[in-house]
Nucleic acid binder design. Structure first.
Lengths: 211, 211
DNA sequence: TAGATTGTTAATCGATTAACAATC
DNA sequence: TAGATTGTTAATCGATTAACAATC
């Protein structure tokens, strides 16, 4: 058995945030950055930055900091975005179309290669690079032929579990779920949930009962 | 000083998820639910459910479970959604418009009362109940006159900090941030961040280097 | 060299879970 | 009553932070 140090889950998302920050710095022409600087920008502790990176190797120079470009390159490898990934979106409502058109995805190496809906009145409508809205019947064949790895759920809650099963059957291994339900998937499939209304409630929890 | 038990941050989001689950059960006509049932549905431990609720009171009946409707009522109070909240959206691109039209917000007691953009070609375009896209110049007066408590940032990263400052100046106390930047706000303002590309990278982190 | 900053250890802090007496 | 399930305590587990020797 390979001894594998366990990575805290929050670390993974912070690595993605470090990467975002480094990308900015690259475009500003910055050459080196210290854990202290990075931490300040992200409102965390510098020891947190160093610890997060230490799970994966030694990337800095003592007394100097981190080379911005080479740390960005390392983070791309760690996060798996040293190559492009193919994505399909299920649900061509407002949210599905917004995600299909979100420029941040392409820039961060995610290619939305198709979008699906069950509503025939939407079929054929072209959604940016994702192409025409396709019927659900084509999901499996498109996922397989285009070697799609990631699916996005942008359908109403009651349709979500059914869609997930179709995605999993077609061979998708990662799912970004915008539907307000807890999905059931096989153990080898990774799910990230975003429930927009939950975010709002986390805010009102703190704002409630103020003057 | 009032002795106040500290609430774990993850607890707050789980409460919102319990509420979501209970809402479903209400519409299914279910009268009682146990922590075990709720836990199973959400893929967590039943002791987690009970502990989360215990921070706020005793809501169950031993041997029986929780009354679905009354627990939902309690959670509404805890989460602050025993009344409606007013929201403005800044940025009338694909994402801003999708959020303005998201039916889950209205259903969960959030009213999107206005939407803003800096692009004059969008002014006047009507976005559902949010009404016409308005110029940024109107932000402060609308927030004040409509007593808006929550702002949504749906603008590009480089514009986000500036927008935040306008929202805070106008009196907004909670912000849902979709822009890929870390915002700087006064201590009394609550921010919830969602970076969509970070979610995708959390997935590729796990999928990287598989066959 | 002197100053700065890393990588890592150990301590602390925070969150989850098991276990069980209380009680419906 | 017997069976079920709560509310809570204490133990465990996981994540963050301070501190500092190593070293650029």
């Amino acid at each position: 058995m390979g001894e594998e140090r366990k990575i805290p889950k929050p670390t993974i998302k912070r690595l993605a945030v470090y990467y975002r920050c480094l990308s900015e710095m690259i475009s500003e022409g910055k050459m080196y950055v210290s854990s202290k600087e990075l931490a300040k920008k992200l409102k965390i502790k510098s020891s947190q930055v160093r610890k997060d990176l230490s799970y994966f190797g030694e990337f800095g120079k003592r007394g100097v900091g981190y080379n911005v470009r080479s740390l960005a390159t390392e983070l791309r490898k760690i996060l798996g975005i040293d190559r492009r990934w193919r994505v399909v979106i299920v649900g061509a409502g407002n949210l599905g179309r917004a995600i299909a058109n979100y420029p941040g995805l392409y820039r961060n190496r995610f290619d939305v290669v198709a979008i699906f809906d069950k509503d025939p009145s939407k079929f054929g409508l072209v959604i940016g690079a994702a192409g025409p809205v396709r019927p659900m019947e084509e999901l499996e064949s498109v996922v397989k032929s285009k070697k799609v790895e990631i699916g996005v759920i942008a359908v109403p809650a009651q349709a979500a579990q059914d869609v997930v099963e179709q995605l999993v059957k077609a061979g998708v291994k990662g799912i970004v779920n915008f539907a307000p339900v807890t999905l059931h998937v096989p153990g080898n499939v990774i799910v990230e949930d975003v429930d927009i209304t939950v975010l709002f409630k986390a805010i009102t929890f703190h704002l409630r009962k103020r003057p």
